[in-house]
Nucleic acid binder design. Structure first.
Lengths: 257, 257
DNA sequence: TAAGATTTGTTCGTATGTATC
DNA sequence: GGATACATACGAACAAATCTT
């Protein structure tokens, strides 16, 4: 097969789109032109019908498209209508999870990322967190002081540990870095729940993870960037070893909202 | 303000959902239960109406939701109907871009990520690419041999350079790593086009970028992981300097399909 | 080429639900 | 409670696309 040599790796061809999709695009354009912000109201159905010369059904389908993308919310009743909405992190994670549903991600793929990104995150966070934030992290790290005595407890501890990382990711000043880390925590949580990625128990290793988290919080308090980075790097190596061990191959769920 | 101390950072409350959304969820469930794969056919409209006891309009709105998420495609005519579709990388990038539209990403946020991820990518790719792939990268790197003589050319070269990185990201064995890098290339490309992130011209620096790319392709051919990593790291530092210089603050477009 | 069959696409009229005043 | 303003949902009819013969 000859190389394409045109730099275009994916076809952008878009021959025909249904009318609701075109209307949804026009609405987006309409919004951008007016620089509407979160909370601003869109024209109501009747006005949309006149504005784009389509029927009610078509307008409604277009609205559903925008709603599915998290761009608008709709309320009934007087004063109701459709309003610009900020896409939530949770919705963005769900939509992205749909993509990876088809992609055959392995645990080690995720850990290749975590190993490089999470130390970067904590290094940038050292000395920057408030007391309240640090206390919350400490609280999360201090749960489950005893080793797990059953598979169910093992799973709980695993999820709890991921919640620590998820919360940490929300403190990131760099939203992209935070999002990617939060997304990985979510994927791993889903895997933990839907499959049985927590047994066989490896209690003393999760125990070690708890210690890591407490040390990490202390380093963050002290503003010690290098220590925070080193602790997280070590933690990731340990966690990877556990995960790879009971490994599995790929992601499998048609993820919901 | 007291810390929440419950580890839940985002409200999951979901009081009422519209009927089309509920139907869309039921359809997802229906699909998962049957383990349908890409290309498999869903029931047609008439069957859906009976299956869920709703009207045609409601079924169609539900389909639009699934379509907007990239989960199905629909064709008219005999043998037509709705079919399970794999979410495309392009669609996933668009949906995610909608999220970051509201997030105030800075150029340096993106480069914090690129600096750590792109060297990691090329290191993992050294010696693993086919001749065809290497030739294509070389072709992309060899375009624009002369320094830009106008702002338009400057922009073209900038976009071309990003296309090199985008293509590279598609070769990644690690789909998550590849996606994130491709996403960043897309964001930067959009910024380059919509804003004027290419002037003032910094011709000799882009020239240096071209040399980096050619050296990189050679290192990839040689299977020299460390060299590839080092070249990319150096390239990222240079590119960051340029970008930060003409910086700007945030992303601003309601990104389309 | 043309006709017919199948399936989605679009419209309209009407009725119902819901929140505000 | 009643009026109002909005979205929500239904059903029937017709239009358009596309496949088969």
């Amino acid at each position: 097969m000859k190389p394409k040599m045109d730099g275009s790796s994916e076809f952008i061809a878009r021959p025909k789109q249904s009318r609701p999709v075109r209307v949804a695009d026009k609405i987006k354009q309409w919004v951008v032109e007016r620089d509407l912000k979160q909370g601003d109201k869109l024209p109501n159905e009747a006005e949309m019908i006149k504005l784009f010369s389509v029927s009610k059904g078509t307008v409604r389908e277009a609205m559903r498209i925008l709603e599915a993308q998290g761009l608008i919310v709709t309320r009934t009743g007087p004063g109701g209508g459709s309003f610009i909405d900020k896409v939530s992190a949770e919705r963005a994670r769900s939509l992205l999870a749909n993509y990876f549903y088809f992609q055959n991600l392995s645990i080690s793929d995720i850990y290749q990322m975590r190993k490089t990104l999470e130390p970067e995150l904590v290094a940038s966070l050292a000395g920057k967190l408030t007391e309240v934030q640090l206390d919350e992290l400490q609280f999360l790290a201090e749960r489950h002081p005893e080793p797990a005595s059953s598979p169910e407890e093992e799973m709980e501890q695993h999820i709890s540990s991921l919640a620590f990382h998820a919360r940490l990711s929300e403190f990131a000043g760099n939203r992209l870095l935070g999002f990617v880390i939060g997304f990985m925590a979510r994927i791993l949580t889903d895997l933990t729940v839907y499959r049985r990625l927590y047994d066989p128990p490896s209690a003393e290793l999760w125990q070690r993870g708890r210690e890591h988290q407490l040390e990490l919080v202390q380093a963050l308090r002290d503003g010690d960037s290098d220590a925070a980075r080193a602790i997280m790097a070590s933690h990731m190596k340990g966690a990877e070893r556990i995960m790879i061990a009971q490994e599995a191959q790929l992601m499998r769920n048609f993820m919901g909202e």
